[in-house]
């Protein structure tokens, strides 16, 4: 399937709870905004194919829950990611000051050290800004990340953020070539689903 797709990339979205990770993703994939976006449980997943410089790349984007308690669960999905979007809320300083923790987390659980990191300051449509753009810039520079401010609500910067990230990944030699054969999530129809999940996350349904 997807013969015309150059490669499949795995992208992660991480950050404190309530900073708007799922909203950013929804804006990017469906170009909608839902003020009543439910809090993510564990990890969620979306796919979108985009064209960068004539190359079509399929993005498998993993959206994670920001609650601390879920952090025993979500880092398992960091494996094999080629890009990560680290989100904070410009109207909540504490979401910005915890960025260091998230970078440590990445360091610990990410299997490749050359992955491309992007910092996104979300919710710039709000008036009650607590984190200045320059602070975000400074942090991004210190940790060699891409940086952009965005608003999932007004769609400012959202498309651009994802495109920029993908372009950077495609420019990084050795980061994505092998993704064709494995590493990334295979979406082909394999009978593996029958085996079911095991280990940490039980596939139990709520009664």
């Amino acid at each position: 399937m997807d013969d015309d797709v150059l490669t499949t990339l795995k992208i992660l979205i991480i950050g404190e709870s309530g900073v708007g990770k799922s909203s950013l993703l929804l804006r990017f994939t469906d170009d909608t905004f839902d003020p009543d976006q439910a809090a993510t449980i564990g990890v969620d997943f979306k796919v979108k194919t985009i064209a960068i410089d004539g190359n079509r790349a399929k993005l498998a984007i993993w959206d994670t829950a920001g609650q601390e308690r879920f952090r025993t669960l979500t880092p398992s999905y960091y494996r094999g990611a080629q890009g990560v979007i680290l989100v904070y809320d410009v109207t909540k300083r504490d979401t910005f000051s915890k960025l260091d923790n998230w970078l440590n987390e990445l360091e610990t659980y990410c299997t490749r050290n050359d992955l491309v990191k992007m910092l996104v300051g979300n919710k710039i449509d709000k008036d009650s800004r607590e984190v200045d753009r320059n602070e975000g810039l400074k942090f991004a520079r210190k940790h060699s990340m891409l940086f952009i401010e965005a608003s999932a609500k007004t769609r400012d910067g959202v498309q651009c953020a994802f495109e920029e990230l993908v372009e950077k990944i495609l420019q990084t030699p050795g980061l994505w070539e092998s993704s064709i054969q494995g590493q990334g999530v295979r979406l082909s129809e394999e009978p593996e689903a029958a085996r079911g999940a095991c280990g940490g996350v039980e596939t139990v349904m709520l009664p």
Binding site: I41, G42, V43, F45, E202, T203, M205, L206
Partner: peptide, 9 residues
């Protein structure tokens, strides 16, 4: 998907 992962919650 959320349900599957809600066991922990």
């Amino acid at each position: 998907r959320a349900r599957m992962q809600s066991a922990c919650l």
